[in-house]
Design a protein around this nucleic acid. Structure first.
Lengths: 138, 138
DNA sequence: TAATTACCCCATCTTTTTTATAGGTTTTAT
DNA sequence: ATAAAACCTATAAAAAAGATGGGGTAATTA
């Protein structure tokens, strides 16, 4: 399951996507809209900024804004950023690979093979669906 | 990611599948093979038994054995049993549904729609692949 | 200059989940 | 009768997630 952090990130991105007409959006506006702690959300937005998805402006009239087109923000990117691996096993993760400790040989592991398939099916959706798809349906 | 519990369950099932020629297999044999704590594994095997996947026999000469054909043990069943929901959000879980607290309307939630797709793609694999597929590749 | 707002680093605290252990009970073969 | 092995329940320990709070600094607008 996705962590709250990731879910909050999606909420924030959706909110920012909906308010692209205004220059900036305050952290507080988003945190109030969804009942998320201001401080908790601050960290999430900061991570999204560092990842190049959001921009920000300090001072009065400042706030956050989408720096990318919604269609260019793949859901997989957001999940990996906040939650880490999408795969169900570390040994089949593309971005966070780690061998399974108790596994003698990956090549001879039947579970490994199936989980690669699951990963690929998940990625078919998560790599191709974007923030734009979410906004479309709201 | 799958919990260790689930991963251990798959290891145990694989082991039992490989040793179907013998009447029973000791917990200890499996725990030693994969370096899993005996007691921890005990609970896992018990759950698999209660779910009707394994059978057991007490006393000397006792142990566990597969009660189902490997081809009849869907991977989804094992995951749900030990780990709970397969879906990435509670609001799209078929077996463990819960509404999202901060969500005003599920019908108007764009994330919900996409996560239904992800769930269905995952299930396409996990419902159709079975222990037999794992055993094939080992 | 004053007010606003993001940025940053930290520390801590609670809650939940996961992982692991302990100790005793029941069944069964020999 | 004894030993072997599963069965059962409870609890502890560890890790992760979620949340809060302080104390600022830096940039920007008015």
């Amino acid at each position: 399951m996705l962590s709250k952090k990731t879910k909050y990130a999606f909420h924030a991105l959706t909110y920012l996507g909906k308010h692209r007409d205004q220059k900036t959006v305050l952290i507080q506006d988003i945190s109030e809209e969804y009942g998320i702690s201001h401080k908790f959300l601050e960290n999430i937005l900061l991570e999204l900024k560092k990842a190049g998805i959001l921009g920000s402006k300090k001072g009065k009239g400042g706030g956050y804004y989408l720096i990318k087109e919604p269609k260019d923000v793949a859901l997989s990117k957001v999940i990996r950023l906040l939650d880490g691996p999408i795969a169900l096993l570390p040994c089949v993760s593309l971005n966070y690979y780690e061998p399974c400790i108790e596994c003698k040989s990956e090549a001879a592991c039947g579970l490994n093979k199936v989980m690669i398939q699951v990963r690929d099916e998940m990625l078919k959706v998560l790599e191709n669906k974007t923030l734009a798809d979410i906004l479309d349906k709201e």
